[in-house]
């Protein structure tokens, strides 16, 4: 009896330690986020203001959505490089349509439809023609960016009184008399939260989600287990690219304009968020909520570097190094896990 219970204890101890190993990167991301906040607060004193948090979320709602969008393919060991370009093409089309007097809801629907079409195209290329995900989405990225450039290379501004306002209008919860201490949010943030909830439910509460993890573990095993791998792959790129269109709506509404170059390099920001958030680039492990933390870490780099007086040119290098550190960390963690 006693021996049985001790082995049981051992087992649970072993289990929790294993889970820890998987979660190290995610925990590290949370720790880094807090450290950044503490450092920012200590040095500049503005990082715990409610206003800081409000703008962090409002300004980066789009990145949170993109991070969720990127999490799905990365979980299977794939990638969706087209997200930034999808933001560009949908933004340009959406704003152009609104400028032409078409009601915003219709423009938004068209934006979503464009996202869906590109997602479907990526799915077809990957599943029907055996293209590697990063090549297929690199192609759709160029296609989307190119078409956006054909449509317009000007900076397009949303007309006054457009119906994009409802997304970006700030809603104050706490109206603090002190400067920049209001707690507020907008529909963009709400949409981002909904997307996160959607991602969470999809991955953890549906069979499709479990299939996504199974593909990440071993695609051939998933196939031999009779899981609908092909259909799931289609869904992944479809949802991922459609979410990029959603991110585009949120972003465009926020800044009120669009250009064909918008979203350049955002695929990297999204990958950074996902990787920092603990999703392993070879697939199989990771969490949507981790990606959200990753997106916040990525978001806070901008104010930090500018407060430190670091030239903006350095930001990309910092982000690059950060992805690198986390990818290396993943390697180490998985290598240690294997040795055990």
């Amino acid at each position: 009896m006693t021996s049985a219970s001790t082995t049981a204890v051992k087992k649970t101890a072993k289990k929790s330690r294993r889970l820890d190993a998987q979660m190290i990167p995610t925990i590290a991301a949370v720790v880094i986020f807090i450290l950044m906040l503490v450092m920012g607060q200590a040095l500049f004193g503005t990082y715990t203001r409610l206003g800081f948090f409000s703008s962090l979320f409002i300004d980066h709602a789009y990145l949170i959505i993109l991070a969720v969008a990127m999490t799905l393919p990365v979980l299977t060991g794939g990638i969706n490089l087209s997200v930034g370009a999808i933001v560009a093409i949908t933004a340009v089309v959406g704003v152009k349509m609104t400028m032409a007097g078409i009601p915003a809801p219709i423009a938004m629907i068209v934006m979503i439809l464009i996202g869906m079409a590109f997602g479907l195209l990526a799915g077809v290329l990957i599943e029907e023609f055996n293209m590697q995900p990063f090549i297929a989405t690199l192609a759709t990225m160029f296609l989307a960016r190119g078409i956006a450039s054909i449509i317009s290379t000007d900076s397009l501004v949303l007309p006054e009184d457009n119906n994009f306002d409802w997304v970006s209008a700030e809603i104050k919860i706490i109206d603090n008399p002190k400067i920049s201490n209001d707690l507020s949010f907008n529909m963009g943030v709400v949409i981002a939260v909904l997307v996160v909830i959607f991602g969470y439910i999809l991955l953890h509460k549906t069979r499709t989600g479990r299939t996504i993890y199974a593909i990440g573990g071993s695609r051939s095993s998933a196939e031999l287990m009779g899981l609908p791998v092909k259909r799931t792959q289609y869904l992944i790129y479809f949802i991922s690219t459609t979410l990029a269109a959603v991110a585009s709506i949120v972003y465009t509404a926020n800044i009120g304009s669009a250009k064909n170059t918008v979203g350049t390099g955002w695929e990297l920001d999204a990958v950074a968020a996902v990787v920092i958030g603990g999703t392993i680039v070879t697939g199989g492990f990771g969490y949507v909520l981790g990606s959200v933390v990753g997106a916040l870490v990525r978001s806070i780099i901008d104010p930090l570097t500018s407060d430190f007086g670091v030239p903006a040119e350095w930001t990309t290098i910092v982000v690059g190094l950060m992805i690198l550190v986390f990818v290396v960390l993943q390697r180490v963690v998985s290598a240690v896990g294997k040795k055990e």
Partner: peptide, 15 residues
């Protein structure tokens, strides 16, 4: 042909 990244139970019930 199971997925080593998932738990025993998840593998048994996958799908």
């Amino acid at each position: 042909n199971l997925c080593t990244n998932l738990s025993i139970g998840e593998n048994v019930m996958l799908g």
